[in-house]
């Protein structure tokens, strides 16, 4: 009987421990940059939710498309109304894992990792593998950074010919997250 209690206790400890290995943020930043012959467009979203699980190596992100701020209000309206159709597809999400998590060792210096998973945007889900760095900062928070490119046509985002010189097909995305322990 004692054994059983012990096992149950261990299990519970395990669960609590696992829970404690999750780091979360709701104020992460994702920005994107489009470089085209006629104009450069950039936008910032500082309300990105993200979680990283240091027990399993799992990662997830979610953001509202409408929370991207543009330099020009009209660009923001066009982005939401015509390109990403945020009324229909309000969110973009990513769910994935740290590649080769078994050999991953978190330190106070940025560690280069690869993250693979699925990015869902504009109703389209695509496999994605991107480089990133993770580190533990002096406050005990986890800092994650990544820069990668995506092709907007893969996500079924159509650019009319009239503005083809204003909007790039290939968009650079920068991710900057500071996760706090849950």
């Amino acid at each position: 009987m004692k054994n059983i209690i012990a096992i149950v206790l261990i299990c519970m400890c395990n669960i609590t421990f696992m829970h404690a290995q999750k780091y979360l943020t709701r104020t992460g930043s994702i920005s994107f940059f489009s470089e085209a012959p006629l104009e450069n467009i950039e936008a910032y979203n500082n309300q990105v939710s993200g979680v990283v699980d240091l027990e399993t190596g799992g990662m997830a992100f979610t953001l509202l498309m409408k929370a991207f701020t543009f330099e020009k209000a009209l660009m923001q309206e066009h982005f939401n109304e015509k390109y990403v159709e945020s009324q229909k597809y309000p969110k973009a999400t990513f769910k994935g894992n740290i590649k080769d998590f078994d050999s991953f060792q978190l330190g106070s210096e940025p560690v280069v990792i690869a993250v693979t998973g699925k990015l869902t945007m504009h109703g389209v889900t695509k496999e994605l593998s991107v480089p990133a760095t993770l580190m533990k900062d002096i406050n005990g928070n986890i800092e994650g950074k990544s820069v990668f490119n995506i092709d907007i046509q893969e996500y079924d985002i159509k650019v009319p010919s009239a503005v083809r010189k204003n909007i790039a097909d290939n968009i650079e995305i920068k991710v900057n997250m500071v996760y706090e322990k849950m």
Partner: peptide, 19 residues
């Protein structure tokens, strides 16, 4: 325990949505 850990891995997105 095992099933919980699978659950924890599978549903990070649900966790975010719940938050």
């Amino acid at each position: 325990l095992v099933s919980f850990s699978t659950f924890a891995q599978e549903d990070l997105l649900d966790l975010l949505n719940a938050q």
